[in-house]
Design a binder for these strands. Sequence first.
RNA 1: GUGGGCAUAGUUCAACUGGCAGAACACCGGAUUUUGGCUCCGGCUGUACGGGAUCGUACCCCGUUGCCCACCCCA
Length: 579
Amino acid sequence: MSSTKAASSSELTVKPGESRSSNFIRDIFLEDLKTRKFGDAVIQTRFPPEPNGYLHIGHAKAICLDFGLADEFAGKTNLRFDDTNPEKEEQEYVDAIKRDVRWLGFDWERLCYASDYFDQLYQWAIKLIRDGKAYVDDLTAEEIRKYRGTLTEPGKDSPYRNRSVEENLDLFERMQKGEFADGTRVLRAKIDMASPNLNMRDPVMYRILRAEHHRTGNRWCIYPMYDYAHGQSDSIERVTHSMCSLEFADHQPIYRWFIEQLGIFPSQQIEFDRLSLTYTQMSKRKLRLLVEEGHVRGWDDPRMPTLSGMRRLGYTPEAIRNFVAAVGVSRTNGIVELAMLEHFVREDLNRRSPRVMAVLRPLRIVIDNYPEGQVEEVEAVNNPEDENAGKRKVPFSKVLYIEQDDFREDPPKQYYRLSPGREVRLRYGYLITAKSMVKNDRGEVVEVHCTYDPATRGGNAPDGRKVKSTIHWVSAEHAIDAEVRIYDKLFTREDPDQVEEGQEFTANLNPTSLEIVARAKLEPSLANATIGNRYQFERLGYFCVDPDSKLGHPVFNRTVALKDTWAKVEKKIERKGEL
RNA sequence: GUGGGCAUAGUUCAACUGGCAGAACACCGGAUUUUGGCUCCGGCUGUACGGGAUCGUACCCCGUUGCCCACCCCA
């Protein structure tokens, strides 16, 4: 597979395992393969989430890299749960993560858990103690912190640093047996308390922690730390290239140190930049807080940047993969514009979504010269992007609904839609002209009376006259009601964490991130819509059927709006008006 | 202040490793259009700064500046 293949229109979608532009990780793979760094071994990677929350769009980048890049080189990828901290981890998250990885379009070679290696890790710890490279420390957490020194001052040796091998062996065994209280002792690697890299100042390898582990139950009361577990887990799985995010770069020396001391398979750590998106919060801790404090309805709330949230919103795995491929990978800390993600969502949805007419905010239209009681079936194209999608019939009658936005009593200059005296086209229907209005007590237009030109059935005038606008509609008597949830950005600021002194990031929550339209009017063909179905509501956006839908009460989510040139023009007009 | 990482259009990435700085998104303009969608065409702005070596540098050398990460018994 060419590493620099350009995107052609027939290959818009990035398959799992395909990538678009060159990147530094691929270069490393190429080089390592060329120099046979790992001998005959194929590329082996792993995606190593901690099961303490749901996967989000940031993880999608890691997944596409771990699985995609390996695929590209005919390599293999394991899904490994980094479950070394039982206090935070749960089976629920394990299940959700597996579901989300599969949904994104990937499958793992092996399903692994760091906890699978607890015995091996324990044996290796004993070896390190025997070799004089690890010791049991009785210092408290507080004391360890003090002894560690600071960024500028070297640390001090713990008074327990030079215990005998025998004593360490004995103490560590007793730690494991549960003879000591939580937090009273740790096992540390004996490296260098003066290292300029704080991670090398005798990192803690094991802590005593009595917590039920979601897999090993109460078998253990000591648990390995990330730094001791991760590299060895990679090595056990013979991972050749272990990709992780940039903040672990400072951990690479420990990663290598353990592997070297143990003399085991030399997995190689490669760091890359995390994905950041404007207007979105990617911190797991803060996402959890949004769920727990009820700012959203759950991890799969369509406003969440989680994969389950995006799935429910209507994003497709293809769109996400294409997006990730387009974003690329580097070692720079940047922030990708949300607009880019939305572009790839629209691009994918445009190709696959059947078009349908739906009116969100209905305005009643009465066609005065249309025969009372008459119903015609007009023919509508299902998807102009896909000839095979075919056509459908849509009922047309005397009383219709159009979008409130599509009528203006007093239209601004560049407004082409319906207004008194103006003729527009009802899509696939007739040309109509607005004649008069009915207003309510508040002076709002509640009904518009029009006339239609019977010669324009289908939307074309025999005399060739043109109209500037085509608007969508539904027949009032045939329309079905639906709840439509209009989602918008969860945060009002590009950087949700940018807050005034004393404020929380929740201060930037968008108060109108969810707007519920209780009784939208849909064309009757939507009666068959089932959960998960996606549509383009013509001129409005892409929508999908939410799992909350009940028989007779369909619920649609707006996945993303269509680009709205008119909205821009209108804004410009307003700005001019202010001047 | 210490160590590490990074710096190329508004944004995210490319640039065959020293040979005319490109793409996508965004933005602006136009064409087309029975979706103010899609598509098509065009435009826009750039190698952080200062030196040096070289016929020639985004790429090499020296220096400066800026940003990110690290001082959990979290991962």
